[in-house]
């Protein structure tokens, strides 16, 4: 069951394309490499990316590592990676490892996508 379902380019909100990547099920040591490949390919189409985690049930430190390295790649490409829909359980891991300080986290993907819109006041 791949952790990454599908992704779509959402341009309705803002001038620059924002990609929304959906994570679902378990993201752990066994499948986190898939995130790396999908993410780097996605980066070529858009550097503003939202990771929608509403369907993400379980995350371990390798999964978290994959997400943090994706953030680094996005920033290196001059963009940003923002998260949405973190469940309480998954948020626990972000808080424990202080990773939540690296990301701007939104309740749902619409808010996250909207946050990329330069016209909308922050």
């Amino acid at each position: 069951m791949t952790p990454v379902r599908n992704y779509l380019i959402d341009t309705s909100f803002s001038s620059l394309p924002v990609a929304v990547l959906f994570l679902n099920g378990r993201l752990d040591a066994s499948n986190c490499s898939e995130v790396h490949s999908v993410f780097s390919e996605l980066l070529r189409q858009s550097t503003s990316i939202v990771l929608d985690c509403t369907e993400l049930e379980f995350l371990d430190s390798s999964g978290l590592g994959a997400i943090v390295s994706s953030l680094r790649k996005a920033i290196e490409a001059g963009g940003d990676l923002r998260l949405s829909g973190l469940s309480n359980n998954v948020a626990l891991l972000f808080e424990l490892t202080k990773a939540q300080r690296l990301f701007s986290i939104y309740n749902d993907s619409t808010a996250a996508v909207a946050s990329f819109n330069p016209l909308k006041p922050e």
Binding site: S87, N88, A91, L92
Partner: peptide, 13 residues
């Protein structure tokens, strides 16, 4: 929040 996480990463917890 009542959240509870069983950590598999021994180096964390």
């Amino acid at each position: 929040t009542g959240a509870s996480l069983q950590l598999v990463d021994a180096h964390l917890l």
